[in-house]
Each structure stands twice: as C-alpha cells, then as structure tokens.
C-alpha cells in the first residue's frame, strides 16, 4: 500500500514538474515564433501574426524593454484591423500603460490594471514591417508579459 502511495506521489510530482517546465519553455520561446490563421471571404481575407514578449518591467515611469514582432512576408496591401494582447500581470504590480507601435510609427496605448485581453484598434494601418510592444507606468513597479496577435486584412 505504502509503495502504491509513494509511486502515486512520484507520478504527481513528475506531472507538476512537466507543467512548470512547459510554462518556462513558453516564456523563453523566441519572439520569432509565428502563427497564421486565415479566413477567406469573397472580398477580403483576414489573417494574423503573433508573438510572445519576454518580461516587461517598468518602475517610476521608466519605459520597459521594447519587444519587437515582424510581420514577415505579407500581401503588399495588408492593412491592420486590430491588435489583441493577452496580458499577464505579476501580482502586486502597479497599473501601467501598454503601448503598441506600428512599423511606420503610429502608437496606441491602453491602461492595464490586471491580467486579461486588451484590444487596440489599428484599423487601416499598414501591417508590413516590425511592430513594437512595451509598458511604462506613472509610479511604483510594474511587471507583465503579453501574447500579442496582430490582425490584418488584404
């Protein structure tokens, strides 16, 4: 009986360690990882590219590290619809601004208090090139990561 309990416990511990390892691996995934989803319609097709940021830290208003995401090769007339960020905020973080910057320099930001999905409207902005993501706050310390999807049409 004891042996059975011990082997059950070992199995549980192994499963837990696999879970932790897969989360770490996801965080360390290169930002070049890319997903494509395509929905064809008669007039326009919708597609997206996406990427994970690493840890973004801001303290007392200082800008975090900037994470970049390239569109890769896209149809020449690709125009954005929106950017959707799934933000994971570390516990105890001060609220902050999440900033998305387009390749031609157009910026939009949103105020983040807690983890969740945030959608930023970039309708009509050129999708082609390198996009940037970062945070900054207005006091205290903020830490977050984000999984960002860039939706476009062509």
């Amino acid at each position: 009986m004891r042996k059975k309990i011990a082997s059950l416990l070992t199995a549980c511990m192994l499963m837990c360690s696999f879970c932790v390892m897969s989360v770490s691996a996801a965080e360390a995934a290169p930002i070049q990882e890319m997903e494509f989803v395509q929905e064809e319609s008669s007039a326009r097709a919708t597609n997206y590219f996406s990427g994970l940021t690493g840890t973004m830290n801001s303290y007392n208003g200082v800008q975090s590290r900037i994470f970049q995401r390239s569109s890769g090769s896209v149809p020449s007339n690709s125009k954005m619809t929106s950017v959707e960020a799934h933000v994971s905020v570390s516990s105890g973080s001060s609220p902050f601004y999440l900033v998305i910057k387009s390749p031609d320099g157009i910026t939009r930001e949103t105020y983040v208090r807690s983890s969740g999905y945030y959608t930023l409207d970039f309708s009509g902005v050129d999708a082609y090139g390198t996009w940037q993501v970062y945070i900054y706050n207005t006091g205290g310390v903020s830490t977050a990561t984000a999984n960002v999807k860039y939706y476009y049409q062509y």
């Binding site: 601004y97 900033v99 910057k101 930001e109 949103t110 105020y111 208090r113 969740g116 945030y118 900054y136």
Partner: peptide, 16 residues
C-alpha cells in the same frame, strides 16, 4: 480608471 480604458485626454506618452 477601469481596465483597458484609454488614458485621459491630455495624458502624454513621454517616449513617443
């Protein structure tokens, strides 16, 4: 401010 709200009018991003 609520989650996901836009900054107040007059708010400036000092980095852009």
């Amino acid at each position: 401010f609520t989650n996901g709200s836009t900054p107040l009018s007059g708010h400036i991003n000092p980095y852009e």
